[in-house]
């Protein structure tokens, strides 16, 4: 997947607990866990906004685009 979720990194940097974040955002811990592992198809702006508000960060701190093998190969050609 080209988009990588770096929520766990931000949580560690802010020394915040997943449980607190889940409670603040209003989602279940299992959904937050799925989000952290990147096993979701999308994130609502509302959820993203709440996470940024809680962690005092920008969306770009949570999400990163990593070129996959196919993109790297195409760029190389």
């Amino acid at each position: 997947m080209a988009i990588v979720v770096r929520l766990d990194v931000m949580l560690a940097l802010r020394k915040a607990r997943s449980r607190d974040l889940a409670r603040y955002v209003g989602i279940t811990e299992s959904n937050l866990s799925l989000l952290k592992s990147g096993h979701v198809r999308g994130v609502r702006f509302e959820t993203l906004g709440k996470i940024c508000e809680f962690l005092q960060c920008q969306p770009g701190d949570l999400l990163a685009w990593v070129p996959d093998e196919e993109t790297v190969k195409n760029d190389g050609d």
Binding site: K15, Y24, G26, L55
Partner: peptide, 19 residues
Amino acid sequence: MTRCGMLDSSCLMNIIYRI
């Protein structure tokens, strides 16, 4: 600065809305 562990009014409203 983070708000870890804190529950302000916005957070409470959000939780109430979700529930």
